[in-house]
Design a protein around this nucleic acid. Structure first.
Length: 474
DNA sequence: TGAAATGTTGGGGCG
DNA sequence: ACGCCCCAACATTTC
């Protein structure tokens, strides 16, 4: 008797190794692997431009490792799957769980619909170290503060889990009505991604290479080095993790195999921040849209398209902010230290709604992830769970002098400042005219004059935020 | 995973 | 020798 035909629905698990749903599907029968671009259900959170570019190449890589047997579809996933099942006499569908609110809602519906058709639906955890509903406090409520969450979870994860090997893919089948990948229109018409392209290799192979490169180079001084954007001490695994080209379990296990030290400990801590973000999104599914602390939703954010645009384009006149924003635009990525700075600047110095920043990141980041992006923006803005206090305002000058003292990072993205001496790099407005002249910098011409006064905007933010807090308390 | 304001200490110049 | 001032360096507090 021939094995029954099953579907593995690839979503944010674009890999073959350590893929529990795929392996289970292979065990159960001959597998048809499918990918569905479901913009219909994503509403406000359709994939951004940079993510689409990444996905396009990730799907090419995955299809290649499946010998071209991956089928592509567009549209409402429920409709696509339902039709596929009927056409091909599918008996079972497999997937790894996603946690975005719209996906949870959609997948619940799909499960019910398929079950009503007599099809078994099997979902797995392919993405997180722990399911978010299994990490609650002893009193049954979810953690809202990272440190206790970390203390609870970390010891439970210390014994490295066994990984699932790549399954036998000899019985994989291509669905006959697959669209060509190009029909998903993931590649933009205007090739703005040229510079992004040179930086990354999407796909499972690239993911593992990135991990190994990091474990054997960057990790040895991770804890301190991770704060210096010019250093290559961060993992750059975020886009691979987001698309599931590598699993958090794989990352955690490989790190655990190394001799334990404070660098590895700290790296694992960051992986657990990712888990924490998912806990927040799972339990407070409104965090992409509204503040965790409701008082912030009444804050009179400034609506100023002009200022927002200058921030987006890296034309604020604050070199480290501008370098970060241009890194984002050119590479689809930004170093974490600089993300905190540009976010603090947008929210606290420009007093622009954190959701504007969140949306820009969503569109520009190759690692755009609903949980991490929302939780992190709310953290910086001060309106999140376990958030940064409202009075913590980064100073772009001080941050530059501390974390990129010789401008190796900053000047890479701001070549027009390449001849400015260290002393004035982060405050060109204070530089004597002859220094500027000698460096070939004319403020307001080839580099912007600062768009706000740091001191005054800081005080204004402190006032306004303190007032909001008062009114919330009353 | 902040920065500025304020407080404290101690060395050196100077009358 | 001493008090005084200045200020850097560091610590603490406040936003």
């Amino acid at each position: 008797m021939p094995k029954p035909l099953t579907i593995h629905w690839f979503r944010q698990d674009l890999r073959l190794a350590d893929n529990p749903a795929l392996s289970a599907a292979v065990d159960a029968g001959a597998v048809m692997p499918v990918y569905i671009l479901d913009d219909d259900n994503a509403k406000n959170w359709k994939l951004g431009g940079a993510s689409r570019w990444w996905l396009h190449h990730s799907l090419i890589a995955l299809n290649k490792s499946l010998n071209g047997q991956l089928a592509f579809y567009c549209g409402d996933a429920e409709k696509v799957l339902s039709e596929l099942c009927q056409q091909h006499n599918i008996t079972a569908v497999y997937w790894n769980r996603c946690y975005e609110p719209w996906r949870i809602a959609r997948d619940t519906n799909i499960k019910n619909t398929l079950a009503a058709q007599g099809i078994s639906v099997n979902s797995f955890n392919g993405s997180l170290l722990r399911e978010p509903w299994k990490t609650n406090k002893d009193d049954g409520t979810p953690y809202k503060v990272f440190t206790p969450f970390y203390r609870k979870l970390s010891p439970q994860l210390s014994s490295a889990q066994e990984l699932i090997p790549v399954p036998d893919l000899s019985a994989v089948q291509l669905a006959d009505d697959s669209l060509p990948l190009d029909d998903l229109h993931l590649q933009p018409a205007i090739p703005w991604y040229k510079t992004i392209q040179s930086q990354w290799s999407p796909g499972e192979t690239g993911a593992y290479q990135t991990l190994m490169q990091f474990l054997h180079n960057g990790l040895e001084r991770y804890k301190t080095g991770r704060d210096f954007p010019a250093e290559e001490s961060v993992s750059r695994l975020s886009p691979y993790l987001h698309f599931g080209e590598i699993s958090a379990r794989q990352v955690f296990r490989e790190a655990s195999l190394l001799a334990d030290d404070y660098n590895i400990e700290h790296f694992k801590r960051e992986i657990i921040w990712r888990e924490f973000s998912y806990v927040l999104l799972f339990n407070w599914p409104h965090i992409p849209e509204r503040a965790f602390k409701p008082a912030y939703d009444k804050f009179p954010w400034r609506r100023d398209e002009e200022l927002l645009k200058k921030w987006q384009q890296g034309q604020t006149g604050f070199p480290l902010v501008d370098a970060g924003m241009r890194e984002l635009w050119q590479t689809g990525y930004m170093h974490n230290r600089v993300r905190m700075l540009v976010a603090s600047f947008l929210v606290k110095n420009l007093l622009i709604d954190w959701r504007c920043g969140q949306a820009w990141f969503w569109d520009c980041l190759v690692d755009a992830d609903l949980a991490s992006n929302s939780a992190s923006w709310q953290w910086v803005a001060g309106c999140g769970a376990d958030a940064s206090p409202y009075f913590r305002i980064f100073n772009p000058t001080t941050q530059g002098e501390k974390f990129d003292p010789h401008g190796e990072y900053t000047k890479k993205y701001l070549p027009e400042l390449s001849n400015l001496p260290d002393k004035y790099l982060y405050k060109p407005w204070d530089a004597p005219l002859e220094v500027l002249e000698q460096a070939g910098v004319t403020l307001g011409e080839n580099y912007p004059a600062p768009i706000v006064d740091l001191k005054q905007s800081r005080l204004q933010a402190l006032d306004a935020l303190a007032l909001m807090k008062d009114q919330a308390d009353v």
